[in-house]
Amino acid sequence: MKRLVLIVDDEPDICWSLDKILRDAGIDSQKALSGKEALTAMKENIFRLVFLDVKLTDIDGLKLAKLIQKIDSSICIVLISGYFYKEDFTVKKALHDGLISGFISKPFRNKDIIQTIKMAGIL
């Protein structure tokens, strides 16, 4: 398995859930519990997709998305959030600006995660 997906969420059990879904689909992932860990991971590995939480303890998720894009402009960033909803102005703007490629609302359906990685061309 290749490490293609970075999971950024400060809730360890959300990482557990996403990691399990991806593993079952034959995709290796790496978790980062903070913005700092995510940036370190980005510098050490190449990822195709990032599942990114909005409310992190050390940085705002959308700010982190900008920093991730600076490191790798071709990366696909999908926001996973319980704070925003799909039609939220902030989400729409981030999609419009190309900062994120998709948005998944918490709680998600496991198959939506699979669908997202298919759309990103990883599966």
Binding site: E11, S17, I21, K55, K106, N110
Partner: peptide, 17 residues
């Protein structure tokens, strides 16, 4: 939303597994 949806996500995902 943030405080409740996080544990809801874990419950939901685990139930789906």
């Amino acid at each position: 939303a943030h405080e409740i949806r996080n544990p809801l996500t874990i419950c939901s995902s685990a139930a789906q597994f």
